[in-house]
């Protein structure tokens, strides 16, 4: 099977979900073509050179200096026509959600999004707020599959070599119907949750804004960063750049230490790739425990101060 993997640049580096998509593609197909769109991708190209791929396809054009759904969807359409892969595979990012449906409609092939795993019956996707899973398959046609964060482990990317090819795309000014301005942050923070090795993450179970300091104190003694779930950010207790989940960061730390987070699906999709998950929550039925390696059923406000004290003493 020939697979076209559409990669995403995250400020010039390869998006983690793109690496995971490459692992998924290597598992599914024999011949992998990786497409990278845009003009500033040297760092990504040197990384890709070490992977087992058939070919890396680069597309540069002055109309692709910044992302647009109009431009990117047109590029993927033209590359698809030229290489006629059996599948397009991509990470399920915000950008994917923004332009991949356009590719689906242009090519008249289905887009099966947010896939968590593959079975012999098809692609498995969470439905009904993750209460059930559905197995979905395409029929005799090509299809686009996007993989949810942590569907595959980036460490399993097969190493090898590949060749490069630049693809000449045909785009005219009138193809781009939108004007994109520079991305910005509302609250500037120099916190990089995605590369933190340990995260102490705080949820509604912390009860009050003043209790958030507990998370920061714990983070300090175990050399971690502090992250949070959406309700805590929406309450204004923690800055929005610390948010983990479908509308925040996608993280995969060595340890995710969750304090009073219930584990709604919107949060879980952003952190279930963590190598180890430890959760403290009063509610024994909290969904966070279903994905936890270590579960403490108890009160964060009692346990965490004690934990900080003991850690400080044992230093």
């Amino acid at each position: 099977m020939n697979i076209l993997v559409v990669l995403e640049s995250n400020n010039g580096a390869l998006h983690r979900l793109s690496r995971e998509a490459l692992v998924g593609a290597q598992e599914l197909g024999d011949s992998i073509f990786a497409l990278i769109i845009g003009n500033e991708n040297e760092e990504i190209l040197s990384e890709l050179a070490g992977y087992e791929l058939e070919k890396v396809i680069t597309v540069k054009h002055h109309l692709l200096s910044s992302y647009s759904a109009d431009g990117y969807s047109e590029v993927v359409r033209q590359v698809f026509i030229s290489f006629s892969p059996d599948l397009i595979v991509i990470g399920h990012t915000y950008q994917t959600r923004d332009f991949i449906p356009r590719v689906s409609a242009k090519l008249d092939i289905p887009f099966i999004p947010d896939v968590i795993s593959i079975s012999d019956k098809g692609f498995i996707k969470q439905v009904l707020n993750a209460k059930l899973n559905a197995t979905i398959s395409n029929l005799d046609n090509a299809a686009i599959i996007s993989f949810q964060s942590a569907a595959f482990n980036e460490e399993q990317l097969k190493l090898g070599s590949c060749s490069n090819e630049s693809f000449d795309v045909s785009l005219v000014d009138s193809d781009i119907k939108s004007i994109s301005e520079e991305p910005f942050q509302e609250e500037e923070g120099d916190v990089d949750l995605e590369s933190a090795e340990v995260l102490v993450s705080v949820g509604r179970g912390i009860e009050k804004e003043e209790n958030v300091t507990l998370a920061f104190e714990l983070a300090k003694v175990i050399n971690a960063e502090v992250s949070a779930s959406r309700p805590v950010v929406d309450s204004g207790w923690v800055d929005s750049f610390r948010q983990v989940g479908s509308s925040g960061s996608n993280v995969a730390p060595k340890l995710y230490f969750s304090l009073g987070i219930s584990g709604a699906i919107q949060h879980v999709v952003g952190m279930k790739g963590a190598k180890n998950i430890m959760a403290i929550n009063k509610d024994a039925d909290a969904p966070i425990f279903e994905i936890s390696d270590y579960a403490v059923i108890g009160d964060v406000l009692e346990i965490v101060p004690k934990l900080i004290e003991s850690l400080e003493q044992s230093k």
Binding site: A130, A134, I136, S137, L139, F289, A295
Partner: peptide, 17 residues
């Protein structure tokens, strides 16, 4: 062009201590 074959209750296979 695509179809849902079945739905099922997710099983977690995580060993939780």
């Amino acid at each position: 062009l695509q179809k849902v074959n079945n739905v099922f209750v997710p099983q977690t296979n995580k060993q939780t201590e």
